[in-house]
Structures are given as C-alpha cells and as structure tokens.
Design a binder for these strands. Sequence first.
DNA 1: AATTTACGTCAGCCTTGTTGACTTTCCAAG
DNA 2: CTTGGAAAGTCAACAAGGCTGACGTAAATT
Lengths: 166, 166
Amino acid sequence: MSEPGVGGESLLFLTDEQLRKGIEAMFFAYRGFTADPDRILDGMDYGRAHHRAIHFIHRTPGTTVNNLLNILGVTKQSLNRVLRTLVEDGLVESRVGREDKRERHLFLTPRGAELERALSDAQRARMRAAYRAAGPQAVQGFRQVLEAMMDPDLRRQFQSQKESGA
Amino acid sequence: MSEPGVGGESLLFLTDEQLRKGIEAMFFAYRGFTADPDRILDGMDYGRAHHRAIHFIHRTPGTTVNNLLNILGVTKQSLNRVLRTLVEDGLVESRVGREDKRERHLFLTPRGAELERALSDAQRARMRAAYRAAGPQAVQGFRQVLEAMMDPDLRRQFQSQKESGA
DNA sequence: AATTTACGTCAGCCTTGTTGACTTTCCAAG
DNA sequence: CTTGGAAAGTCAACAAGGCTGACGTAAATT
C-alpha cells in the first residue's frame, strides 16, 4: 500500500512468502541458538531456565530478584524454584540488600561463574561462526530486525542497556 | 583472521560484547516473535506445540507424521498427543497413504486452515512491521545470520525448500 | 517367513510455566 | 507508634509439553 516513488523493486521483501520464510528461519535458528547450552545442561540437574538466570546474573551482578523477574518474564514462583536450586548448589549467592533489606541481590559464586563461562562460550562460538559467515553488514541488519521485533518495553530496556555499554 | 585490506574497522563486530548483545537480542526478539500467537492460543485448549504442527501442515499439506517429526525435532509420542487433539477437534485430517498405507498424510480442514490463518496473520503482522522498520537490506542480513546459526542439517532442508519456493 | 518401518498408545517421569493463598520482613506515611 | 503496602519467600496444586520405555498392529521389504 502507498509507498510512493519507490518503484517496483521495493516491498518484494514484504510478501507473505518472504515473511513465512523469515518466520521459519527464526524458528530453526532459535533451535540452533539454544542447542549447545542445552547439551551442556542436560546431564546436570539444570535446564534452560537455569541458563537464563545465570546469564542475566552474570550480566548484571547484584541485580535483585524483581529485576530478574521483569527481564525473564516469568512469575516469582517459577524463578524462585530455579534460583533456590542454584543457591543450594552454591552457584549463586543471594545477599540481603544493604539499603533495602527486603531485596536480595544476586551474584554468581566462582563455581557459578565457571558454569556461566562454559555455557556462554558454547553459545558465543555458534554466534561468532554465524556472524563471521554472514559478515558485518548482515550482522547490522540482523540486529536491526531483531530489535524491531521485540515488544516495545523490552526494546527500550535493551537499547538503553546498549547505550551505556557502547 | 585474514580479510586483507579491510584494516582496523573489521572484526569489531565479533567482540564478546557484541556477541552477548546478539544473544540477548535473539532471546528478547524470540519472545516478541511468539507473543501474538501465544495470546491467541491461550484461552483455547492449544499451545505453541499445536501452532507449530498447524504451521508445518499448512506449509506442506499431505506431509507424513515422520516428516513432521523430523522438522519439529520432537518424539512421536509428544507430537502424537498434539496431533490427536487436533484431529479429534476437526482441525487436522489424517489420511492413510495411497502408495504406502502405513503412512498418514496430514491436511488442515477448513477449520484448521481458519485457525492457521489467524495465527499466521498475527505473526506475520509483527514480522512485517519489523521488516518494514528495518528495510530490505537489513532483512537480507537478518536472514543470512539466521541461516548461518542453524544446525547444518536443518539449514540444508531450509535452503532447499527455499530454492523450490523462489 | 522374518524383519523392518510407520504409526499409535499406555504409563510414567521431568522441567518449567501458571494461580492462589499465606507469611515474614521492612519501609514509609499517618 | 502503628499500620498499610511492597518485596520476597513458601506451599500447594496444576498444566503444557518435552522425554523414555514398552507394546501392538499393519504394511512393506528382504
């Protein structure tokens, strides 16, 4: 519809066929994306939920349970089950907040950091290979489309995190 | 390594920081990607597994159970549970094979096609918005990276499907 | 005739998500 | 100081959707 002046070459990438292929690419790629960490985790008592918790605690040490809840988009009961096992097993440390003692601040223990490293090494290796194969231009496009696909709230979180990290 | 002549600008997109952001982008984008169909499905008795089955039966009408198994990467017991409810509810038809009578060929009924439409309309709408926001160049990069991220077997399947469809 | 293949099904288990109800701790406002 | 409400944790129950193992049947293949 509309889009005056762009001529016939444009908008071909918006056909239902193209979109369907994008959808399937997303589905299959996500499988690859999670495959390596999943392989590491199964055999241990942990699953993908533990991986996610560990990842974000690593990224933002001292984050509170509530923060994590919002990022992960699960209920506190669900997160708590995961967190409890990680604390029990000595991979995560939960410290009572100094300012607000209701809050618990989460940190990886050395052993937790070790597992995090193993998981993210595997995941980054796949990502790196894909990035390298596709090239910097493609990576930029990849990131643009992914960001545009996020829910607006998450996109804002994601992008603000990006600015401070650049 | 190598990449002669490109100078210092290259390979910056392969830093651990960049890869970590790509990983998180993938995570958050996938949530957005599944959010709309999930919303439609919950309230009905169906979930994401039903969506996937419906999607691929729609894409390849007459596909066999075994085909579907391989594409979805689940066990037959798991798929069967989903498929049974879809057949019982009259969304999917399972026809005994004419050549090989051991096989069951799967088709969407009109009602199944109706649900498929609702689900894929929602998912395509988000995809279309993201594609439009990012532009054709970015979409090409998006697809390149995703394909490079798949497991090799799936990538082959995916790409051969692409050729015949172009 | 024996074996393999495709499919279905029963039973049981695990992970990870959900709701609902309840407690404890603590901050902050009245 | 008391009280209201937020943050966190806990218990219980449940559901979806993965998994394995075992078994049955029909059809194709050898």
